[in-house]
């Protein structure tokens, strides 16, 4: 009885709190000053119609570099975490990998190129439409995952992937430093010609940075998926 009364009181208090929150919500009529400056600056000075890419790759480029570094640390430490313990028994028979069958195999042959093409499309159109390096790289890694599911005997060349990924990372930082030398600051993409707003080759170095990000994320996530197999 006591408990019920207490829960009714708690629910009533929560109702008061949430009604106050809902009541205090005001729909903003205009953008906040920071958002407004991003929205006007992205098309004008970066010549990218995609404000989000402008923010992610230029104004908050250092954060993106940090995210990539976090991903790198995840990939590096996974091997340590997923190493089988000494004397651990093998997994039971029902969970051992078996042949996924002819239909999945044929489907992979149709869909794998499609997924890779779509990933590349998302990466190279990052400065024009929704998407960019991170998203496209994740799509590419999803294609690799399909490959690993459909043909379990595939061996990924993880050494090559690691080298590709590290090279992309180094080039990313180098482009950032070029931004310091030739333009306004770290990861400033305006040292390349700006081009026309909305053109495929435009927005300075943003497509280059986006492509490097895509290569790096795709290679990295593929290595992560491969590590979960063993």
């Amino acid at each position: 009885m006591m408990q019920r009364v207490l829960s009714v009181i708690v629910i009533g208090l929560l109702a008061v709190v949430f009604t106050r929150i809902v009541g205090a919500y005001v729909q903003l009529d205009a953008l906040r000053p920071l958002a407004a400056s991003y929205v006007t600056l992205s098309p004008e000075s970066l010549t990218t119609p995609n404000v989000i890419t402008g923010i992610l790759i230029t104004y908050r480029g250092l954060d993106t570099l940090g995210e990539v570094a976090v991903l790198f640390m995840v990939a590096a430490s996974l091997g340590l975490l997923l190493k089988p313990l000494e004397g651990q028994p093998k997994p039971p028979k029902a969970f051992q990998r078996s042949d996924p069958g002819e239909i999945v195999h044929s489907g992979k042959q149709v869909m794998f190129p499609m997924i890779l093409t779509f990933g590349a499309y998302v990466i190279v159109n990052g400065h024009l439409s929704a998407g960019g390096g991170f998203q496209g790289g994740a799509i590419v890694a999803a294609g690799v995952m399909l490959l690993l599911i459909a043909t379990p005997e595939t061996r990924l060349n993880t050494t090559l992937l690691s080298i590709v990924e590290s090279t992309a990372g180094i080039l990313f930082v180098l482009l950032g430093i070029l931004g310091i030398v030739l333009a306004g600051g770290f990861l400033d993409p305006r040292f390349l010609p700006a081009g026309e707003l909305g053109g495929f080759i435009s927005a300075g170095a943003i497509p280059l940075i986006s492509a490097l990000l895509g290569i790096k994320v795709g290679a990295e996530l593929s290595v992560v998926i491969d590590k979960f197999r063993t």
Binding site: P100, G101, I103, V104, G107, V110, M111, M114, I149
Partner: peptide
């Protein structure tokens, strides 16, 4: 096209 390929195959698997 993608839905036609992926939907039956995934549910088959």
């Amino acid at each position: 096209y993608f839905v036609y390929v992926s939907n039956p195959i995934s549910s088959h698997a």
